[in-house]
């Protein structure tokens, strides 16, 4: 394993499978009465979040605590940034406090990569701009593997705002390597033609055609905060065209699973009856996120041990 987890782009399928296997053991720990192991006792984990996030930050925080680390949260725009401190200085300061693992979320793509080059601590990308969100892809792969017991040859549909979605990008990088047949669906304004050139990826403009015989359906959140640039007329129209309803779900395989990275916009990208229905694994994704993030921190710490001999 490497020191940092920056993106799924550079990960090998062997590394991905190792992480998922370890995550499965951590998931067993999370089912016990005592949901904590002493694995990383004495280490310090810092959440450095320059973009608002409750779900991801809480998940990382709890995962770190389950590994017996001490956790500190910096949420931005923090006072030091407002005082003019540079991003790198903030990160170096956090490292000087004794951080072993720094988890970064930032609205600009590439920030975790830049910082990783300057830090001895491990860097985990918790979402950088519209680039990647690798632990989300890992937890999605884990959920798919757990439900379908394989990935090779599965037909998976990703629907929605692909253009702005770091979740979609990390998932595409990850699942391609695991042999999943990917279909991307969305309004042409939010689905750049460049995606069609990725090997193993098909682009559909007709949602109903794309859903046929799908094993996995991933609905993306319509990022309302990034809209307002005329990508689509109204949210009602968006739901009519690209929302997942019970009727559209019936086109997929009967045992298809429905996924969503959250937070959900009910009635915009997904109907409530589908989100709460029997095909939905949305809440299991949340649980699996903890196990996967524990596995990532475990392997990154171990990798630093290997290098030191």
């Amino acid at each position: 394993m490497r020191k940092d987890l920056l993106g799924m782009k550079e990960m090998t399928s062997e590394e991905i499978m190792l992480l998922l296997k370890t995550a499965s053991s951590f998931k067993d720990v999370l089912k016990r009465d005592i949901k904590k192991v002493p694995t990383l006792r004495g280490r310090t984990v810092v959440n450095l979040f320059f973009e608002p996030s409750t779900r991801t930050r809480t998940s990382f925080e709890l995962a770190a605590k389950r590994l017996s680390t001490d956790v500190i949260n910096f949420s931005g725009p923090s006072s030091s940034i407002l005082k003019g401190e540079s991003l790198l200085d903030t990160a170096l300061t956090v490292e000087a406090l004794g951080a072993d693992i720094i988890i970064i979320r930032h609205s600009s793509s590439g920030v975790p990569h830049m910082l990783a080059g300057h830090l001895r601590a491990s860097v985990i990308n918790a979402g950088d701009g519209t680039n990647e969100h690798p632990t989300q892809a890992l937890l999605d792969a884990f959920t798919i593997l757990e439900k379908k017991e394989r990935t090779e040859g599965l037909k998976m549909v990703i629907v929605g705002d692909i253009l702005h979605s770091r979740v979609a990008k990390s998932n595409i990088y990850c699942l391609m390597k695991l042999g999943v047949e990917l279909r991307l669906i969305g309004p042409s304004t939010l689905l750049p033609p460049a995606f069609e050139e990725i090997p193993g990826v098909k682009v559909f403009s007709d949602m109903e055609e794309g859903l046929k015989d799908a094993d996995v359906i991933m609905m993306l959140r319509l990022q309302l905060e990034r809209q307002g640039k005329g990508f689509f007329p109204t949210t009602e129209e968006y739901f009519r065209e690209w929302g997942l309803t019970k009727k559209k779900l019936a086109l997929a395989r009967p045992d298809a699973i429905v996924m969503h990275p959250g937070p959900m916009n009910r009635g915009i990208e997904i109907a409530s009856e589908v989100a709460d229905g029997t095909n939905s694994v949305i809440l299991e994704q949340v649980t699996n996120g903890l196990a996967v993030r524990m596995a990532v921190m475990y392997h990154l710490e171990q990798a630093k041990g290997e290098k030191r001999g």
Partner: peptide, 20 residues
């Protein structure tokens, strides 16, 4: 499997985690 309880995570190369 005792991987998560070891005291030598930084000293020794660990094998893949097995099931408990």
């Amino acid at each position: 499997d005792i991987s998560f309880y070891r005291d030598d995570i930084k000293i020794r190369r660990q094998p893949a985690v097995s099931k408990t």
